[in-house]
Design a protein around this nucleic acid. Sequence first.
DNA 1: GTTGTTTTTTAGGCGCCCCTAAAACAATAT
DNA 2: ATATTGTTTTAGGGGCGCCTAAAAAACAAC
Lengths: 222, 222
Amino acid sequence: MLSHAMENYLKVIYEILEQEDRATTSLIAGSMGIAAASVTAMVKKLAGMRLIRYAPYQGVQLTPAGEKTALEVVRHHRLLETYLSEALGVPWDRVHEEADRLEHVLSEDLEDRIAAALGDPNVDPHGSPIPSRDGIIRRTSTRRVTSVGVGETVTVAEVADRDSRLLQFLGDLRLFPGTTVEVLAVDPYQGPLLLRAGGREFTLGAAAAEKIRVVSPSSGKE
Amino acid sequence: MLSHAMENYLKVIYEILEQEDRATTSLIAGSMGIAAASVTAMVKKLAGMRLIRYAPYQGVQLTPAGEKTALEVVRHHRLLETYLSEALGVPWDRVHEEADRLEHVLSEDLEDRIAAALGDPNVDPHGSPIPSRDGIIRRTSTRRVTSVGVGETVTVAEVADRDSRLLQFLGDLRLFPGTTVEVLAVDPYQGPLLLRAGGREFTLGAAAAEKIRVVSPSSGKE
DNA sequence: GTTGTTTTTTAGGCGCCCCTAAAACAATAT
DNA sequence: ATATTGTTTTAGGGGCGCCTAAAAAACAAC
């Protein structure tokens, strides 16, 4: 049986591998807020259980078994985020921390009931895809809003960040997944973007803009 | 800060003290399914934190601070049971185990949202009272169904047991809190009861009957 | 290619919470 | 009053998951 800590490591490793091609000790430690030495120890244990592949100094990869488990945890997490947001009105900048604690104590039965109550959603409040029960995750090809040309109109697809302050800020601007935005101007050298959304115009700094992924409008992702 | 284990001890001690006047080491150990020696160690720690009063060989009592915390955990537990039952349709014989895991990771914010979504209930699916946010618990005076006279009609108030099999059995008979039952006959020497409820007649063994507490009909407890 | 810096690993340790086995105590029966 | 029985406590131990400090490996710069 897997401990909560182990489940969490697998989830973190999965999320790192979504962006980087190697999940290194320090990335894992950084993401979890623990010491690198602790990660080394756990990573060995998980490798012994054939959930990850690990060669010293090389970072880790998920095995198929490890990825399966990671996807189950991610499903729990993202379903919970969606449920908390939709059913209980928890603001989107706080669902992450709540789900982090709940995800490890959610039974399969409850998972099914929550999914059913939501109508089997496939994206969470941040626009991240929710893996299906059998571990299939529907990826949409998105691009950063920073790569959008001036004058183009796009739809926010995903804001994949756990920083509550950023989410609160974007929430105040109504920049949720599904929102349509027009890029009015881009300042040179990673400068801020001038956007129009919901009839209002505002600028967005590079740091915030980097977290926002978009799709061309009416491109499927609701 | 309190660990999950400590919270759980306080809850268990509280629940024992609802029925017995001393929470002994073996009662605590029995209720939690752990060794008595483990209880002794923890009980010392909790006594050091002034959450319980403990004298060796004498069992434990909750201090005001300990009772306050215990009531918070009990509130979490019973609110969750109610929510799982009402909002997600979890059968009443399974809400207990789910709530046991969730209760320790429920934030105050979520607690409030769940309570509000339910309209601030004051009984859980088993008829047990839910402490208010400020730790006030509304006790109703109930009596065992075994003490009801033949011919009397009463309302089920509480089925305070965590045994899933018993609850499932009673659920099949529709013997939920709120159900009206008429005692048709009582066999002598702790014999089974013959009951009528919901237009059907059936017998109930002494073991099951002992767990059921009732009130006179229309006596407040909805 | 040697030096300095950063990352990772090893070594040793700690708190938590559980265990078993044996000793101490309490309650009860004789 | 003592012996028996049952309960509780002490003693010692183990796994888990984290830590710090120091050693080792990898990486980068000159």
